[in-house]
């Protein structure tokens, strides 16, 4: 059974995929207030991800959630590079590097600058 990972697109990410075939795959959420790409993850790869990150889980929608920010960033980088959503193998190749970055996230994540 496939699972999914949602990649949220802010303005900067939307700009990076502008003019590519990915634009057609952007999904509108919550009345268009949020844009997202959805990456399909086969069961065996989903299990590999769950094993790599102890807090990761599959939510009631079948989405892999509670993934480290480093994982989500790497996933988008690979998507933007390949201009495709078929990048999960590429991301898994970077797993040791992502796990190393994720360890630091247990201690500190910089807060956003908002009023």
């Amino acid at each position: 059974m496939p699972h999914y990972i949602g990649v949220i697109l802010d303005e900067s990410r939307l700009a990076q995929i502008k003019g590519t075939p990915l634009e057609e795959k952007v999904q509108d959420l919550f009345g268009g207030q949020l844009k997202m790409l959805v990456v399909e993850v086969p069961e065996d790869k989903a299990q590999q991800i769950l094993k790599a990150f102890d807090r990761a889980r599959i939510d009631s929608r079948g989405f892999l959630e509670d993934l480290p920010v480093a994982f989500k960033r790497a996933l988008f980088e690979e998507i933007a590079k390949a201009k495709s959503l078929d990048v999960i193998d590429k991301v898994l190749e970077r797993l040791p590097e992502i796990q190393e970055a994720a360890k630091k996230e247990d201690e500190y994540i910089p807060p956003p600058e908002i009023e």
């Binding site: 949220i8 919550f30 509670d66 994540i109 807060p111 908002i114």
Partner: peptide, 17 residues
């Protein structure tokens, strides 16, 4: 958990959420 992911990435959730 979807919202937590959004928050961790520093994305302000839309006000409808």
């Amino acid at each position: 958990s979807f919202l937590r992911g959004m928050v961790a990435e520093g994305v302000m959730p839309p006000k409808v959420v």
